[in-house]
Design a protein around this nucleic acid. Structure first.
Lengths: 140, 140
DNA sequence: AATATCATTAGTATATACCTAACATATGAG
DNA sequence: CTCATATGTTAGGTATATACTAATGATATT
């Protein structure tokens, strides 16, 4: 077996986050934009996005990339985990940016369910240290 | 550049942990034992251990593998991080084994410094949920 | 001496992640 | 309408990590 459509890599994670944060109101993104934002060359970006397409997280049409429903869900899950552990680290005394960087390395590997329990334990903050909302009901 | 001797991969992480937990009192381990414990074939294990050798984490002699000083330090750092976040998850209501599995995917990617701050925040427990000590002074 | 055990070499394969060079195509400027 | 630019895409290449099998070497045990 090899086509593991349920796990993603760090770069794939970065890419779906990039797609989410830079496509205004669900509008697709140009490939060269993804490449520029991710600091990679166009063919590398195309390759990456094609892998995401195989995993049903992204749709490509006329050189434009857009998250699928599954892709959107994946991003929201990652963001919930990200903002939860980011909040935990900041509450513990870790600087905001340090926390963000570290959590970005692991958020896509951790479960939403566990994050929800941790979120509760740290007092259910409604916003992450950057002031962004910690998603809850959007998920189910 | 490519020879990144400061970061390790998941399998390399698993390997140094295996070496630590199965070599009684600093005694080196046979390669076939490492292979068996990690569920991989001997040549794969040899390859892995050679990578760790290049990173100065392991020494090989006569088909025996042993952690170097740097390797020991790496393991202790990983275990501190592991047991800290494992404790956090369990305190939050995550079952012990679930916590252990999830944390094993990320412990080698997270910093000791941040873990120490989290450890303090969750009440500086002296033992992880499995009853193993959370290393402190051994580190510096 | 034969056998079993282990390490090692060599060769193959896949996935990820990056690149350059070349080509295709559309669009806007002149 | 043509030229230049922007963009996407192909093709081909490199490197690392992770795995395998098959064959060979080396060392012990019986």
């Amino acid at each position: 077996m090899s086509n593991d459509t349920n796990t993603i890599t760090k770069r794939e994670r970065d890419c779906v986050i990039c797609l989410k944060e830079n496509s205004s109101s669900g509008f697709p993104m140009r490939l060269h934009q993804v490449a520029a934002l991710m600091n990679i060359k166009a063919p590398t970006a195309l390759n990456l996005i094609r892998r995401l397409e195989r995993k049903n997280l992204v749709e490509i049409q006329d050189g434009m990339a857009m998250l699928t429903k599954k892709g959107e869900e994946t991003v929201i899950r990652i963001l919930l985990v990200h903002r939860t552990y980011e909040s935990l680290l900041c509450q513990s005394g870790v600087p905001k940016e340090t926390a963000c960087e570290e959590v970005a390395e692991v958020d896509y590997l951790m479960s939403e369910d566990n994050a929800r329990l941790v979120l509760k334990k740290i007092g259910s903050p409604e916003k992450c240290p950057h002031g962004k909302p910690i998603p809850m009901e959007e998920l189910h």
